[in-house]
Nucleic acid binder design. Structure first.
Lengths: 276, 276
DNA sequence: TGAATAGTGTCTGTGAGACAATATTAT
DNA sequence: ATAATATTGTCTCACAGACACTATTCA
């Protein structure tokens, strides 16, 4: 092996083809909570937890659904690549984006070796109306979870996608699961795993961070905020407890939301306690 | 663009050189808590939070320290690659291993584009004695943290490594930080960031998981367990509160630890509540 | 008027923080 | 005897779960 005297000299000589290289992609879970009008004028809009999927129009996995994603450029930061995809596929800029997990099984793409880093993006319901790629669609997410499996149904009004994930506790710990795809026929790649782990992360983070406000418009009622928690966590919350829990994260405004056939509701906004 | 009739046909024809490929590595934070004998026979061993580093013996970053790591093979799962490195560099098998984060800035390696996925491994103090690679060494970790910066000092008895990380709160959230290397002269690559984010993850997980028992031998006293929490969290805990907190995670054995010039201590073991 | 949501009061039990007290050993 | 750690008791306060109650609107 040749002896180098300096880093510069070494780099000049360096042959980067020494190791076999691989391809890298990013996949993005774009989550939001959508409204559905009710026929009863008194009732609040029903909320759904939603995720954006894209229908693949070529191989591999032609005609299956997958997460928005794409290859990482050779000189592109992986997070920048996620941002580029958000802009291209969903016309979204400057939104909450968080890295989730890197999936690196050698067999996850039938074409060749592809490692994929998944990201989670959150938007508020008003941005559901952004112009998305023509083969993309928002799906409502329904989850049934017990100790061993997670059953997920995705529905965009035209088509239903169901998959089932098995959870196995890992050795030496009571809290880390190893996920396994048990049933899946309409989603490409290992995307059922990506979706399941993203939902799990979001649920957890709801409880100990302010992440939810990335899914809220600037002004919102506490009822709406509570609905968002409920639809993501998949359970009802008690009003007084909920209000106590978020009390120091929001501030009252002078605006009200009226017109609902019931008592009007005060509009709140997010209070960022960064400085305290 | 050619029309394909089936996935098989498409794959047979697929040219994987369409996108420029990159190299991928894994870096592993191996954490443990070590004992240091005290001169006073009555006193408990002092505990240190430790991380394993390797001295680089060639370019780039020759003579700097870095985390154990290496390239991911073209047909190798990334987690398997981490396990291979653990076996080669530290002779460790079957230990706790968790993916942390994927660092993908294009400039993080001066040779070429390298994306690196970091892992965290935990071992108990008895495994500190495993035969490690000859250029590897255990460093005690000391952390000073305030709202804006994290000061870390690593010490292996012969050499001190200091670095400083800046924390900037991200937009739209009160809990996610963007880390920045402010000072660093002895660590290679972006490894100060990897270490800081790993420590942060470990601290958080201590509080809401059973992860700590991966750093404990089979039998331990509650005092020792408390010391491990204290040295990682960097603060003293109150005995009764601590005992209440871990009460249902441990079970008493009939063994005792004696010989300490003070009241003997009951040895406990981890109680895995998986089935409940 | 009544259905529906908004918002508050308050009781109760749990559990963490804090401090004090007791127990047991090797030198 | 004493220094050091081990272990438990208990007081208080904060807070979450639970349920009840009041407030307000519009067809």
């Amino acid at each position: 092996m040749k002896e180098y005297k300096s880093e510069e000299e070494f780099l000049k000589d360096y042959d980067s083809s020494m190791y076999e290289k691989l391809s890298m992609t990013t996949d993005i879970l774009i989550f939001s909570v959508s409204d559905e009008m009710q026929d009863n004028y008194r009732k609040l809009n029903k909320k759904h937890f939603s995720v954006l999927l894209v229908k693949r129009d070529n191989y591999p996995f032609k005609d299956k659904w997958c997460l928005p994603g794409g290859f990482v450029g050779i000189d592109e930061d992986i997070e920048d690549s996620a941002k580029r995809i958000l802009a291209n596929e969903a016309n979204l800029h400057d939104i909450y984006l968080e890295q989730l997990y890197t999936f690196g099984s050698p067999s996850r793409d039938p074409r060749m070796r592809v490692v994929s880093t998944s990201y989670m993006a959150l938007i508020d319901k008003n941005r559901l109306n952004e112009k998305i790629a023509k083969n993309a669609s928002w799906f409502n997410v329904m989850i049934l979870e017990d100790n061993e499996t997670i059953d997920v149904t995705l529905d965009n009004g035209l088509e239903q996608i169901k998959f089932k994930i098995g959870k196995a506790l890992q050795e030496k710990t009571t809290d880390r699961y190893k996920y396994d795809i048990l049933e899946n026929d309409k989603l490409a790649f290992d995307h059922p795993l990506v979706i399941a782990s993203g939902i799990s992360r979001l649920k957890n983070k709801l409880e100990y961070t302010d992440i939810v406000f990335n899914m809220m418009p600037e002004y919102f009622t506490l009822g709406e905020l509570q609905q968002v928690y409920e639809v993501i966590l998949g359970k009802k919350l008690l009003d007084p407890a909920f209000r106590r829990m978020i009390a120091n994260k929001v501030e009252k405004t002078t605006k009200m939301k009226t017109g609902g056939g019931h008592r009007p509701s005060v509009l709140f906004k997010y209070k960022n306690n960064k400085d305290e």
